[in-house]
């Protein structure tokens, strides 16, 4: 986390507070930080219940995206035929606006959790595949030649060399994917739900309850930040060799 990013956060809070306090903008448009905090504490139970729903959808979508994405990447790297067929499909799935197809998923899958997870998967899948393919292809060719002279079976080369070598790339994809998964879940909730933070925000919007709307936005962003940090901690724990090497060369990670 860089120094400037840290110092900007209180600054943003001050700007928000000044705008609200000086009534530069009507209170029903931008609530004061105090009013928002009030909602966060007084409606904590209500918010928590919906936060949990969104988090659950996000995590499930993210997990499916990781498993499917990694498997797809492995198959694509080992078979150029599969790569040629899969790549255009992936690209299409990526460029088609998820918000536009979300209502279709609700029609197909109903108002339950399924369409939310599907959208989260679709949105988080692409960075996982791309980073994993890059990682698997970035392996040192001399290392592969060495393993050939050792008489390595393809699965040995994969398990001992290619897969671990691809993990730093994969993790940078996972950090993007996990924040996108939150967006996916909320988009799913927007088009049809009776629970989750997307539902909370829509309800608050309909009631012109801006403090609640802001509280929902705040919690939603917080989920993204927390999950991002969790992935980063997992990376540090799983790839200590990578983190320590990076810390000596790079300056900022946030």
């Amino acid at each position: 986390m860089s120094q400037s990013a840290l110092s900007k956060r209180p600054a943003a809070l001050v700007v928000w507070w000044v705008i609200a306090a000086a009534e530069l903008i009507e209170a029903y448009l931008v609530p004061s930080p105090g009013a928002t905090l009030d909602v966060l504490t007084s409606k904590a139970g209500y918010l928590w219940q919906h936060t949990w729903v969104t988090t659950y959808e996000t995590l499930l979508g993210f997990a499916i995206a990781v498993v499917v994405g990694v498997l797809a990447a492995v198959v694509m790297v080992y078979s150029s035929t599969v790569e040629r067929t899969l790549y255009p499909i992936l690209l299409f799935a990526q460029v088609v606006p998820k918000i536009a197809i979300a209502p279709l998923f609700v029609v197909w899958l109903g108002f339950g959790i399924a369409p939310k997870i599907l959208i989260a998967v679709l949105i988080a899948f692409f960075p996982v595949v791309i980073s994993m393919v890059t990682g698997l292809k970035a392996v040192d060719p001399e290392m592969l030649q060495l393993s050939a002279t050792m008489g390595a079976k393809p699965w040995q080369t994969f398990v001992k060399i290619r897969f671990p070598a691809s993990l730093p790339h994969l993790f940078s994809g996972l950090k993007v994917a996990v924040t996108l998964a939150v967006t996916g879940a909320v988009v799913g909730e927007f088009v049809g739900a009776n629970e989750g933070l997307g539902y909370v925000i829509l309800q608050a919007n309909g009631n012109l309850d801006t403090p609640m709307l802001f509280a929902g936005l705040l919690v939603m962003s917080l989920i993204g930040v927390v999950l991002f940090v969790v992935v980063e901690i997992a990376e540090k724990l799983l790839l200590p060799w990578h983190a320590s090497r990076r810390d000596t060369s790079a300056t900022t990670t946030f």
Binding site: D140, E142, M143, L146, K160, I161, P164, A165, L239, W241, H242, R245
Partner: peptide, 8 residues
């Protein structure tokens, strides 16, 4: 020429 070691 490069040691080609596994960094992990």
């Amino acid at each position: 020429q490069r040691a080609a070691l596994l960094e992990w």
